[in-house]
Computed example of a mutant assay.
Amino acid sequence: MPLALKLALSPLLVMQAVATRRRAPLLPEAAGARAGVVGDGPALRLLIVGDSSGAGVGVATQDLALAGHLTRTLAQLARAQVHWQLIAKSGITTAQALELVQRERPQPADVAVAVLGVNDVIDQVPTRRAVQQRAALADWLRLHTGVRHVVFAPLPPMHRFPLLPQPLRWIAGSDARRHDDAMAQWAAARGDVSHVPIAISLAAECMAADGFHPGEPVYRACGEALARFIATELFKTETSK
């Protein structure tokens, strides 16, 4: 998107952003345990790091959120006993996620999943800096938790968020695509990091009540896709298509 156009629209975008925040209902993070064990077989240690989407905002419990769908599906596909831990907080950027895990000191893990990026777009973090912050997060997790691989979920198609009015929705969508393309390019150059594209529907019935956060259908689709990638690409498990 041309910078001049974005600057020209900036007063309207600020007004729309403020109005959107005021009218959006404040939804809680999903209730339930943020660590557990699921499945049978060889142990597979999984760490999930995220923002509100990682924390399950939009559904009632972690069983219905990303963590529940991801861990159950991974245990089934990898034929493993998944020992999982979730460290997530609504509203955080990638840089703040790194600060969070540094404070929380997660348990050792084999693989980490990061669900971040929307707040980088909202806070207008430059694309290059956002990628650098993802690299810092991945490097810290590799060094301090022992993870062999960090899997990054894609940014959602923000141009389809029902809550956002135009042109704010269009601008946010353009920024999100730019961030996601840069993240995919960065991840492709590293052997210990992956970016997993996921095709999801953001129809109103698939979203949370606020029109911004995922609903259970989106969490299920993302959790299953990430689990399939981990099982088939990282652990080379044969699964039926």
Results as ranks from 00 to 15, higher is better:
residue 137 L to I: 11
residue 130 A to K: 08
residue 203 A to R: 14
residue 59 V to W: 13
residue 162 P to W: 05
residue 25 P to G: 07
residue 83 H to T: 12
residue 168 L to Y: 12
residue 154 P to F: 15
residue 231 A to W: 06
residue 88 A to W: 11
residue 82 V to S: 09
residue 170 W to G: 11
residue 190 R to I: 07
residue 24 A to H: 01
residue 189 A to I: 00
residue 187 A to D: 01
residue 74 L to H: 04
residue 196 V to H: 13
residue 13 L to F: 08
residue 165 P to K: 06
residue 150 V to Q: 01
residue 62 Q to R: 07
residue 161 F to P: 05
residue 233 E to F: 02
residue 79 R to I: 09
residue 85 Q to V: 04
residue 160 R to K: 12
residue 139 D to M: 05
residue 66 L to F: 14
residue 180 D to M: 01
residue 43 A to L: 14
residue 40 D to W: 08
residue 116 L to P: 01
residue 23 R to V: 15
residue 66 L to A: 05
residue 223 G to Q: 07
residue 185 Q to S: 14
residue 140 W to M: 03
residue 7 L to M: 11
residue 95 A to K: 09
residue 222 C to G: 07
residue 9 L to A: 14
residue 66 L to T: 02
residue 81 Q to P: 05
residue 100 L to T: 10
residue 170 W to C: 11
residue 59 V to H: 13
residue 156 P to I: 00
residue 2 P to K: 12
residue 187 A to C: 14
residue 122 I to A: 15
residue 8 A to F: 14
residue 4 A to C: 08
residue 88 A to F: 02
residue 61 T to R: 13
residue 194 S to Q: 11
residue 119 N to I: 13
residue 227 A to K: 05
residue 29 E to K: 04
residue 86 L to P: 00
residue 214 P to K: 06
residue 194 S to L: 10
residue 125 V to A: 06
residue 25 P to R: 08
residue 239 T to V: 15
residue 124 Q to R: 12
residue 213 H to K: 09
residue 82 V to L: 03
residue 53 S to Q: 01
residue 140 W to C: 03
residue 8 A to V: 00
residue 69 H to D: 03
residue 193 V to A: 11
residue 148 R to C: 07
residue 206 C to R: 10
residue 104 E to V: 07
residue 74 L to Q: 07
residue 120 D to N: 15
residue 232 T to I: 03
residue 148 R to M: 02
residue 176 A to N: 01
residue 75 A to E: 00
residue 222 C to F: 04
residue 99 E to H: 09
residue 185 Q to H: 13
residue 93 T to G: 01
residue 12 L to D: 02
residue 224 E to Q: 15
residue 15 M to W: 15
residue 5 L to S: 04
residue 108 P to D: 07
residue 82 V to M: 06
residue 209 A to N: 05
residue 198 I to E: 11
residue 198 I to F: 00
residue 94 T to W: 01
residue 127 T to P: 00
residue 126 P to S: 12
residue 6 K to I: 12
residue 109 A to T: 10
residue 135 A to N: 12
residue 128 R to C: 06
residue 228 R to T: 15
residue 106 P to I: 02
residue 173 G to M: 09
residue 12 L to P: 03
residue 238 E to L: 13
residue 179 H to T: 05
residue 4 A to P: 00
residue 1 M to L: 13
residue 73 T to D: 10
residue 59 V to M: 10
residue 143 L to F: 04
residue 146 G to C: 10
residue 64 L to H: 07
residue 213 H to G: 06
residue 175 D to I: 02
residue 31 A to T: 12
residue 233 E to Y: 00
residue 168 L to V: 09
residue 39 G to N: 10
residue 214 P to W: 03
residue 234 L to N: 06
residue 77 L to T: 03
residue 229 F to T: 03
residue 188 A to F: 04
residue 100 L to R: 14
residue 18 V to C: 04
residue 117 G to F: 05
residue 240 S to N: 11
residue 90 S to E: 08
residue 120 D to T: 03
residue 147 V to Q: 04
